[in-house]
Design a protein around this nucleic acid. Structure first.
Lengths: 413, 413
DNA sequence: GATTTTTTTCTCGACAGTCGAGAAATTTAG
DNA sequence: CTAAATTTCTCGACTGTCGAGAAAAAAATC
């Protein structure tokens, strides 16, 4: 059964409300906070002084005197309240970013991964080194890092930061919490990359449409195929999930996939799969680990010039996606689909197959063709998603622990 | 953005907590309520006296003096606080049940639907008549009916009580809210039948395993195919959804389905589809509206005696289900599957195909074969599901409106 | 039968939270 | 220098939950 409610919980929730308003709209004055949160002015006063005393927010130094009347004082997060490290693992590199509590990027570097060595042990060594490096370089104390937010393609455990399966490491699991526990007190979270894209796009949509926004799917096309779904939950919150779409069954007994199964969607729509179809390689060939985009570009231009076989390859890929998407829509509800990733450059070639695949299903016949839209800049969306999720979690954690602790400190002073 | 929190909301939530405990465990004493809800004794006192004054709960007449000490006084719902009508629409009949606030069945009757006439207008007339009849027969005042909970197979709008598509009425939609608005002030809700099965089974599982329960799918086999999914949500609540599983795409360009599309799962695993395969009827034959179970029984016994063709028919059905389920598990997570409905009598014949279909997918290779379990008594589960959902909603509504109103009445006295 | 023990329920004061209204602060306009 | 405008702060009222102990009521004991 559900937990009981209490007055302290009320305060916690309303404090988080204030912090979220600050995240969404940047520095805000007392009055604006009251407007956004619908809390009374008196309550805002109490909460802000609490948060200020707890060193979580601060009043802006110079207030812009705009218009007459008593000048507003803007509240904003204290940047040094805590820090976040974002780790984005992609097939050929790992990007590390250090971000402060206000969401400002402080430091960033990218480490290339050697494609030959996809050894978990060496990857973990690299991860540890890089994390150490970024924190040393910043001259921050280690325990100021409150959260490490990691993303990868592949299958992620929902409750713990465990990578169950990934295109890079296969079935070699990585438990990031276990790996980092001894060196870091920070909370470690792990999300599927396309889930973060969905989170970011969902946020954008909600900003635009407000409560009218119902649901959206983000489809990432590349060497592997990812899907993230955002839907409005029962209580109005947005709920995000990352279906294992790339390895959903497309064709029983079909082409061999990188995952070892047969007939996955990825085995028809992933870059290596398109290549395989284009070159008429037998479907049970062990797929290439990595396909240079230039290779695929060649096939695409030849397809655009009329090459039957290459057109067919993209069409097959599109069909696999279309059928798969139709199944997703059956299982959830009809929703717009935002397409990202390097594969969007072949959108013109894929579209026909996608549409045809979608069109056959009962949902689409009922609800009509869902809106398809291309969103080019996937890396930015992934990073946005990281910030959205991780910083919101930090707000939550800080309110739960921070205020109480800080007030205890106050008392002893 | 989320709504703000307030002390009144706290009281509401905790009141609901008390009512839910009463639902779950039957009549409870002050002490037990305190134990179950983790609320302090003092709070329980305040809440119970409030609810009692608002005529929502009452103290039991005769308290059983068991053991020494001050005897417990048991609280229970006031039966006449409000009533619920449950309407279960199935392919050949509609069942009406009148239930009081404590969940006790007061009256029930079943109306046969003529299979020839599947006319929405006449159905609606029948519905209105039957609802009137059940309330007149009970001698209750019309406005004592607080809720009408309807279920059907098919596709249901999630936010409104609108039947979008059903095996009975096809694409002729029914907006039950609109239909009943003029005669009834009661809240009208509509759920997919298998969703209710899932809700009921999920409740049972949670009672057994508590917080360890993660997720479960209920699969209903019959003339049509239904699926309900229960999963534990972010905040620990159980979330229920009814994917449009029967009409998820199984085989592109495949057999013609009752819905008019081709290749739906139902077009391979529904009763009419099994018949079609068994008799080698062309796959684009317009499917029979209704198949007597005796017909299918014959095919089954012949299959059990070794008839190749009939074994094949059930195997095809099993495969369609297995592939479909594998896709559901890909899209959510691996979870046990509870199988209900009249089709369970052919479980022995279907199992091989189901298992084979499941086994091919990436999820099952990763997580192992999900637990399959047969739950025979579907009608009971559907009714249980109705009660679970509708009465919980009534608790919620009553607390939100009832307490305040009743207290106003008090003041005027 | 009176007293003690045990168990349950009720009550009181302390403390935490939100809110509306109006006071206080502070700048611009005239 | 005063009035108007605007924002922030403060006070008292109200509603919550909680812990501790009083009150109630039956069984056990002397």
């Amino acid at each position: 059964m559900l937990a009981k409610s209490s007055t302290e919980l009320v305060r916690q929730k309303n404090s988080v409300l204030v912090l979220t308003a600050l995240r969404r709209h940047g520095p805000l004055a007392h009055t604006e906070l009251s407007d956004f949160t619908k809390l009374s002015s008196a309550t805002i006063s109490v909460i802000t002084t609490d948060l200020e005393r707890a060193q979580i927010i601060e009043k802006a130094e110079h207030q812009t005197a705009s218009g007459r009347g008593r000048p507003r004082v803007l509240f904003s997060q204290r940047r040094n309240c805590g820090y976040l490290i974002v780790v984005i693992i992609s097939s050929d590199a790992v990007q590390y970013s250090l971000v402060d509590y206000a969401g400002r990027l402080i430091d960033r570097f990218t480490e290339d991964r050697q494609q030959t060595v996809s050894n978990v042990a060496s990857f973990v060594r690299g991860l540890r080194d890089a994390l150490n490096r970024i924190v040393v370089r910043s001259r921050l104390s280690r325990d100021k890092i409150m959260m490490i937010s990691i993303s990868s393609k592949g299958l992620v455990e929902s409750s713990e930061p465990v990578l169950r399966w990934s295109p890079i490491f296969g079935r070699e699991q990585i438990d990031f919490a276990a790996v980092l526990r001894d060196e870091w007190s920070a909370k470690v979270i792990l999300d599927n990359e396309t889930l973060l894209v969905a989170a970011a796009v969902g946020r954008l949509e909600e900003n635009k449409k407000g409560r009218d926004f119902r649901a959206l799917a983000a489809l990432s096309l590349g060497h592997s195929i990812g899907l993230g779904v955002v839907r409005r939950g029962d209580e109005g919150k947005l709920q995000i999930s990352a279906p294992n779409f790339g390895h959903m069954l497309h064709m029983p007994g079909g082409g061999l996939c990188r995952c070892g199964s047969r007939g996955c969607i990825e085995a028809y729509a992933g870059f290596y799969a398109i290549l395989r179809t284009a070159f008429d390689v037998p479907l049970d060939t062990i797929p290439a680990k990595f396909v240079p985009v230039a290779e695929l570009d060649k096939i695409a231009t030849s397809a655009r010039q009329g090459s039957r076989r290459n057109i067919h390859a993209f069409r097959q890929a599109g069909l696999a996606l279309g059928y798969g998407l139709s199944r997703v829509l059956s299982l959830h509800e009809s929703m717009p689909i935002a397409i990202t990733g390097p594969g969007t450059r072949y959108y013109d070639l894929l579209l026909e197959g996608i549409s045809e695949g979608l069109a056959e299903s009962h949902v689409v016949r009922m609800e009509g063709m869902p809106e398809l839209r291309v969103m080019a800049d996937e890396p930015t969306l992934v990073f946005e998603g990281h910030l959205n999720r991780a910083l919101a979690m930090m707000d939550d954690d800080i309110v739960r622990s921070g205020v109480a602790v800080a007030e205890l400190n106050e008392q002893t002073v």
